[in-house]
Design a protein around this nucleic acid. Structure first.
Lengths: 337, 337
DNA sequence: TTGAAAGCGCTAACAC
DNA sequence: GTGTTAGCGCTTTCAA
């Protein structure tokens, strides 16, 4: 059906090696170049990456396994990652495992069958058991957003300094005199949830504040969860005077709940949200935020992967920790007693 | 490095044909089955899909080209699509073209090099020029969400009845006596935008209402855009008495703007939103909505693709139109003069 | 049921 | 700079 290099060889009278060289950026006599290009057009030749992969033992495909696709934090990472990988001619095969450990393992197996050259994973299984085959095969494995401690020197990772991020926010609030600080976290047990909680607790301790479980809520990283968590916090007899919400979707939900409850910001409550300032531009123009460098996470991950891939199998793993930024807005203020 | 079938053959003393048959579900003598399975475990054999693809001329990969990844409508479609495709052992290669025509074409070329068996596209280029190579190669092409009229009998498609959807909403409102109905659309020129506008206009005409351009706004399908559009509508000297917003993100933005503006729903304004009821569950419990069957779109698309793939090249294209649903809430009411 | 052998489309020695 | 050739790891006739 489709034309092959053999067809080109027949058409041009050249040998396969010449053609191969041409397609791989080698030098070819000018008149042959013209000849080849004419033949390519005439026969609608399209190089066959599958054959190339078999021969070179590189699929030029990267497997990406994520817990879900309907989360803006994840999709913006994937998007920027895919962008740089595709520029380097790597295909990105995305597998959404719906935060299901079994599916996650299946996804890894599936990708290994396809001989992906590398694996990027935002892990659901905190034990890392699902990565065994990939590790055994010797391909570079790169974790994003969530570290798996037991795999520290076997994989690379691109993460943010979660404890520091939470600390930044909470210190900002304690610095303004707040002592009852509500915290809305993701799901219990997740790496980022735990780290952010620790950052919160540390910052409270620094300020000599006894943590109160009532003020620590889990919103599952969803808008609905954030809304609910804030509703609950508002229902407390001793409401918090400040609030820190730890992802974008929950911040949205929280803002809705606060608006709904007629809470004035920052008069009644100081608020620090999370991520995606650009979307808030018009809507909450002055929200104080902790921002993760989402695009950088994707780019870093992609570049790190390309690096590992380029090192010819002799890669040494790296953990890249990106720092977050506190964007000052006007949604926090000094606690008036 | 990795074990091959040859290694298995040596280990078991069997021929390649026997092994191949075993792996492809053929019948093998019981004692050979045991032998093979032992060898597989011993050598950590993993089938090589790349080699299989080269031989069978099927990559078992589907290319998916979308305008952006950070849109919940798109990701929920992809997610359900990927789910069924992977169950059938198809890999999904996602290419985000950022609503850029050039990138879209590049993505198609890229996927053709990888010899994807089929192409699923939420098109940015309304001319369909980017699909030429895929069409020429004879692989099934499936459009989702957006039709390209000039390609009607060359491709399949899974879309929703956009005009009907908008009509449903607007007729609901006119039926309650509303005559000044605000409409928040996506970006001008998009297939869905145009169709929904037509549905709106038709429904107005039916009700004998002269459309007024002031009430027709473009919110770019983003939360921010929806927020801005509603701000503008509220600023009109003759405000609309009802509002129809045509996607999820814009509905969110709209609700924020309305809440912010102190607009009571439905007392001051009747509102019909779009999509994702589940997320609104807690937050806007009673919003009247037009809902697209997002999961079905993904599933239908995947199944239709599998069908086309299974037909051995002799496929006939189909346009599947799914219908939307009007979910009654309490955000609309009879217009009190 | 099983084995031998050819070949999918490409790359990379190697020889010219 | 170019041509010849031998595989990459599988599937699939064809014979046994």
């Amino acid at each position: 059906m489709a034309a092959t290099m053999k067809d080109l060889a027949r058409e041009t009278g050249l040998g396969l090696a010449t053609l191969s060289k041409y397609f791989n950026g080698g030098t070819v006599r000018e008149k042959n170049r013209v000849l080849i290009e004419a033949a390519v057009r005439k026969l609608h030749y399209v190089p066959n990456e599958v054959a190339r992969s078999l021969k070179t033992q590189h699929s030029r495909a990267i497997g990406v396994v994520i817990p879900e696709l309907s989360n803006t934090f994840i999709t913006s990472i994937i998007s920027s990652m895919e962008d740089v990988l595709r520029k380097h001619d790597y295909a990105v095969i995305v597998c959404d495992c719906r935060s299901d450990i079994r599916r996650e393992k299946e996804a890894v197996e599936f990708l290994m069958h396809r001989r992906v050259d590398g694996l990027i994973n935002m892990a659901t299984d905190t034990t890392g058991a699902h990565l065994k085959t990939a590790l055994a095969a010797g391909i570079p494995v790169l974790l994003i957003d969530r570290l798996i401690e037991s795999l520290r020197n076997k994989v690379s990772a691109v993460i943010i300094d979660n404890a520091h991020a939470a600390g930044q926010a909470v210190r900002k609030l304690t610095g303004l005199g707040h002592r009852r600080i509500g915290l809305v976290l993701g799901s219990p047990g997740l790496y980022t949830t735990d780290c952010r909680l620790n950052g919160y607790l540390d910052a409270l301790k620094e300020a000599g504040i006894e943590p109160d479980d009532e003020y620590i809520r889990y919103g599952n990283y969803t808008m609905d969860g954030g809304y609910q968590a804030v509703q609950d916090l508002l229902a407390l007899k001793r409401r918090p005077t400040a609030l820190f919400v730890t992802n974008f979707e929950m911040t949205l939900g929280a803002m809705l709940a606060l608006q709904r409850g007629g809470i004035r910001i920052p008069e009644d409550l100081s608020v620090i949200g999370f991520d995606k300032l650009e979307l808030f531009g018009e809507i909450f123009p002055d929200l104080t935020l902790i921002r993760q460098p989402q695009l950088s996470i994707g780019r870093e991950a992609a570049n790190l992967m390309l690096d590992l891939l380029g090192s010819g199998g002799s890669f040494s793993h790296r953990i890249v920790t990106l720092s977050t930024e506190l964007t000052e807005g006007s949604s926090v203020r000094v606690l008036k007693p």
